[in-house]
Simulated scan of single mutants.
Amino acid sequence: MPANPRPSWPYLVVGGLSYPFLRVLFRYRAKGLERVPAEGGYVLAANHLSNADPWPLGMALFPRRYLRFMAKAELFWFPLGPFISACGAFPVHRGEGDLEAVATAIRLCREGHIVVMFPEGTRREKGLRKKHTARWRSGAARIALEAGVPLVPAGISGTDELSHLGALRVAYGAPIELNDLGSMPLEDAAHAATDRLSAAITELEGSLS
């Protein structure tokens, strides 16, 4: 098992500066950390409320772990692109079946990184420019199965209420059982794992209300 990759210095700086604000201003709390693997790579999958979702997901694991996450390719313009790359992001071309992004996620998991995924595919509520409808996708499960790493569910609340200083809450769950899916074709296994993941994330999110 590879050693846990060290976070980049921009990741550490942003995390160190923002942690007091999360704890005090947004009353940040996380539970279930004892269920999360302490070593090695895995896919961390959660419900998707806003673009800020990776922030509270990572803070409970900060500074020990370095979370990596897909961000839409349109964000990778200078100087934002190099900065968000240093903070853990890698580009994905949405709606195009981006095999390069998937291959990157699999490689990162195998190298010991935590790759954050949002199986709903897009934020549940956006403004008038919303182009994609949220629906459960099997990409997170497929990446975990192909990389041979755990698939860990999480629930988030409050990231859609940041402007109102809503309380931020995160609940981590135990890894989804995947061992019994090994004899199935990848497509079928990914869909079966996604059904389990959806149920686990929904339950975790409900526990935060």
Rank of each mutant, 00 (worst) to 15 (best):
A71T: 07
K72W: 09
K72E: 14
K72M: 08
K72Y: 08
A73H: 13
A73R: 14
E74V: 04
L75M: 13
L75N: 14
L75V: 09
F76L: 08
L80Q: 07
L80H: 02
G81C: 07
G81Y: 02
G81T: 06
G81E: 07
P82S: 05
P82Y: 05
P82N: 04
P82D: 06
F83C: 09
I84L: 01
I84E: 06
I84W: 00
S85E: 14
S85P: 00
S85Y: 09
S85F: 11
A86V: 04
C87H: 01
G88F: 11
A89S: 13
A89R: 05
A89L: 03
A89F: 05
F90P: 06
F90W: 01
F90Q: 04
F90D: 06
P91G: 05
P91E: 01
P91S: 04
P91L: 02
V92C: 06
V92W: 10
H93T: 08
H93S: 11
H93P: 00
H93Y: 07
H93L: 07
R94A: 10
R94K: 11
R94E: 06
R94V: 06
E96C: 01
E96D: 13
E96P: 00
G97S: 08
G97V: 08
D98V: 02
E100C: 00
E100M: 11
E100R: 15
E100A: 15
A101T: 09
A101N: 03
A101W: 04
T104Q: 14
A105G: 14
I106D: 09
I106T: 11
R107A: 13
L108W: 10
C109S: 04
C109A: 12
C109D: 02
C109W: 01
R110G: 12
R110D: 03
R110Y: 03
R110T: 02
G112H: 02
H113W: 02
H113Y: 15
H113T: 02
H113Q: 11
V116L: 15
V116E: 08
V116H: 02
V116P: 08
V116C: 12
M117H: 11
F118M: 14
F118I: 02
E120G: 15
E120F: 05
E120R: 04
E120Q: 15
G121I: 13
T122W: 11
T122L: 12
T122N: 12
R123H: 07
R123E: 14
R124V: 13
E125Y: 11
K126D: 14
K126A: 15
K126F: 10
K126G: 15
G127S: 10
G127P: 09
G127I: 13
K130L: 14
K130Y: 00
K131H: 12
K131Q: 15
K131F: 01
H132C: 00
H132E: 15
T133M: 05
T133V: 14
T133I: 12
A134V: 09
R135F: 13
R137W: 00
R137Y: 09
R137M: 15
S138L: 03
S138Y: 01
